[in-house]
């Protein structure tokens, strides 16, 4: 196969520079005054603190923050909103999950400065003033132990159910894969999905006898 590269014929380097109107790049390390002047032109802020305003749980929060402050740290350390937890701090575990414009994201891997002008919802406000039905279902199904992963999990679960009203097992495996629990509460979370989607939970929730358990078992047994 051909590996020859083609350059769009109708756009030369000179044309491009003309279009862009910028003949040189904005230097990275120059005198402060020069940086300031060119920086303002290109909208450069930082590295010092800059005023940042976030809309969280329907309220406005403002602080002067360095651009490197993550949304999670802004919420927790500056606005004392501690429902989102910092566990891995690398977008691996989901304990920091919040909704931004109704979509679940990792707040540890989002800069606060990027999250301005968006609607941010944390576990504390998932159901507005009252706990969300998903959160009550977490209690009903004892889908928590130490509880550190739980707030993030409830946010992810609510978002999952918005997309999969009748979450099947395979959908749960993928759709809630972004959250990890160390105590091992996943079985209860399966119960949450089953309850919220109107299905009977499998396994032995609510049963005590061996016969009852066998009757609800998907595998083997009877």
């Amino acid at each position: 196969m051909s590996t020859k590269e083609k350059e769009p014929a109708n756009l030369s380097r000179r044309d491009f520079l003309k279009i862009s109107g910028i003949a040189a790049s904005v230097p990275l390390v120059v005198s402060p005054t020069a940086t300031e002047a060119q920086g303002q032109q290109a909208g450069i802020v930082g590295p010092g603190a800059v005023p940042i305003t976030l809309t969280v749980n329907g309220k406005s929060f403002s602080a002067d923050l360095e651009p490197r402050v993550t949304l999670l740290d802004a919420l927790r350390e500056h606005f004392d909103i501690t429902g989102p937890k910092r566990v891995c701090d690398r977008g691996e575990c989901g304990a920091c999950t919040v909704l931004i414009d109704d979509r679940p994201v990792y707040s540890c891997t989002t800069l606060a400065i990027e999250a301005q002008e968006r609607q941010i919802i944390t576990a504390e406000h998932l159901g507005g003033a009252q706990p969300h039905a998903v959160q009550s279902a977490y209690v009903n199904n004892d889908a928590q132990q130490c509880g550190l992963c739980t707030p993030g999990f409830t946010v992810a679960t609510k978002a999952f159910l918005d997309k999969h009203a009748h979450g099947a097992d395979a959908e749960i495996a993928h759709g809630l894969a972004g959250n990890l629990c160390r105590c091992g509460t996943y079985r209860g979370i399966h119960g949450v999905i089953a309850q919220m989607s109107g299905r009977e939970p499998k396994g032995n929730a609510g049963t005590t006898t061996i016969a009852e358990r066998l009757a609800t078992s998907a595998e083997g047994g009877a």
Binding site: A24, S25, L28, A42, G43, V45, P47, P67
Partner: peptide
């Protein structure tokens, strides 16, 4: 820490890159 820019055109963005 770092400088942060949020350009609104590709040309601006390219110019900001080292």
């Amino acid at each position: 820490n770092f400088e942060y820019a949020s350009p609104t055109s590709v040309e601006q963005a390219v110019a900001l890159l080292s």
